[in-house]
């Protein structure tokens, strides 16, 4: 594989090949992800700035404490969101397996793992849809915040505005990731990669999917834990 052979540094810049030792598409995917990291970073830093400039902030453990099919007064903070986190980690693992199988040209394993990844992505989106719906029925939305600050004082709408904007933007990334994975699955099933002789395209889709998981690590920490 081009990615695993490391040529001496002086030869990399000798011309005739990519000094980054990857194909063009993968390099550009890395640059795209870097720019996307700045977008998410700007969102999260803006959230942090506003939170630091506020005298009070709602306690996440009092806001996110329910789960599907729970009683109305259920008090289970962190439980549902940890399930969502693990769903995303597991789907990331199956994506790595799909990329690995692609390296070895094992079409069947690629298909299985891609399907598992897509299921994981859809499961995560369903969880998020449930949570948004639940918060909406509690009265939270952009511009509306029924949750008081942790110290009991009246909160501004910053909390809900940031929550829905950032998790919404992340959810949109998960959604496009699922679409990309479905396209990859169709391309695998129609033998497009077999004809090309390599599965490098899956690797790029995988990079995007891992990035989505990576962003969730930050969103999860910033909104639910601290």
């Amino acid at each position: 594989m081009t990615t695993t052979t490391t040529a001496p540094a002086d030869k990399l810049w000798g011309g005739g090949k990519s000094p980054f030792n990857v194909e063009y598409g993968k390099l550009m995917m890395w640059y795209f992800l870097m720019s996307d990291a700045f977008t998410f970073g700007a969102f999260l830093i803006s959230y942090g700035t506003i939170r630091f400039s506020s005298v009070g902030w709602p306690d996440p453990n009092k806001v996110f404490k329910s789960y599907p099919f729970a009683a109305e007064h259920a008090n289970a903070p962190l439980v549902f969101v940890s399930i969502m986190t693990f769903i995303l980690i597991v789907s990331s693992v199956t994506m790595v397996m799909a990329v690995q199988a692609g390296h070895q040209m094992r079409k069947k394993a690629v298909v299985t793992n891609l399907i598992l990844t897509i299921i994981g992505g859809i499961a995560f989106l369903s969880c998020q849809a449930w949570e948004w719906h639940h918060l909406f029925t509690e009265g939270a939305w952009w511009g509306r915040n029924p949750f008081p600050n942790a110290d009991g004082s009246i909160a501004s709408t910053n909390f809900t505005n940031y929550f829905f904007t950032i998790t919404g933007f992340h959810g949109f990334h998960v959604f496009s990731g699922v679409i990309i994975n479905i396209v990859m699955l169709i391309m695998t099933l129609t033998n497009q990669f077999e004809k090309r002789g390599h599965y490098l395209m899956i690797e790029k889709a995988g990079l995007y999917w891992h990035f989505v998981d990576l962003v969730w690590v930050f969103v999860f920490t910033c909104f639910y834990l601290i």
């Binding site: 990615t3 490391t6 980054f20 990331s92 693992v93 690797e203 995988g206 891992h210 990035f211 990576l214």
Partner: peptide, 8 residues
């Protein structure tokens, strides 16, 4: 997961 460690 993103294989960055094995890149140039």
């Amino acid at each position: 997961f993103m294989h960055m460690k094995h890149e140039v």
